[in-house]
Design a protein around this nucleic acid. Sequence first.
DNA 1: CTGGATCCACACCGATACTG
DNA 2: CAGTATCGGTGTGGATCCAG
Lengths: 131, 131
Amino acid sequence: MATKPDARRRVEAGQCDAYDPSCPSRPLLDRLADKWVVLLLSALADGPLRYSDLARIVGGVSQKMLTQTLRVMERDGLVSRRVTPSVPVRVDYGLTPLGWTLMPLMYAVKEWSEVHVEEVEAARATYEADL
Amino acid sequence: MATKPDARRRVEAGQCDAYDPSCPSRPLLDRLADKWVVLLLSALADGPLRYSDLARIVGGVSQKMLTQTLRVMERDGLVSRRVTPSVPVRVDYGLTPLGWTLMPLMYAVKEWSEVHVEEVEAARATYEADL
DNA sequence: CTGGATCCACACCGATACTG
DNA sequence: CAGTATCGGTGTGGATCCAG
């Protein structure tokens, strides 16, 4: 718990600003602002899931994007990967403590799109009509 | 205020699910899960801003992406665009009531990346080391 | 079952030049 | 000031095949 106060101090001191393209938080934000990251973190909200479960829950995701996104999230310390060396092999993905702090935000974005999609569609229809 | 209860009912009934690629909320989520959307909505948290202000605050954004992203957000009913026909012309962008409900979520994501960037960098270093 | 590897079309996006 | 238009490199991402 030594890095969080430091980071918070840097943020308050304006030393870490996602508005600044040279700040490390910018590429991080770029990785997080991703459709699959939002859906995968949301899917893991209720506990660890197997690779095939994630592929089933998150519809339309290709094997490539599923594996690729999980790798990046694992690399960033958001999800943990546990391999059970059975035959066939079994792999479970779960949220790390760090990923657990991000999940609610992503879940909120997913829910927002579900709840407000009709309002957005209506706005789009109005915009088209006024064209 | 008639659409919101309907939408919420549809969500609770499972008729609107971002996990389903054929649900309209999926392409919406895809548009929202964007670096520039997060930064622009966050930038408008303190009130309307001019085009040039947004370009200055959100570093590294090209004219093309700035205009394009603002157009999509306007079309989706997230931001309002008000033109003052002076010379030279002045354009102000602000959050709509709908955009105002989304802004806190995006702002939270931006702040998360700023606060936790060091932890993520540390996780990445560990991942590289274990390779 | 859980990927890794490859190919390739396409969309994205930055740079640049130009305009009311 | 606030865009529009266009071009071209680059990366994304789906499909497919293969492997442990």
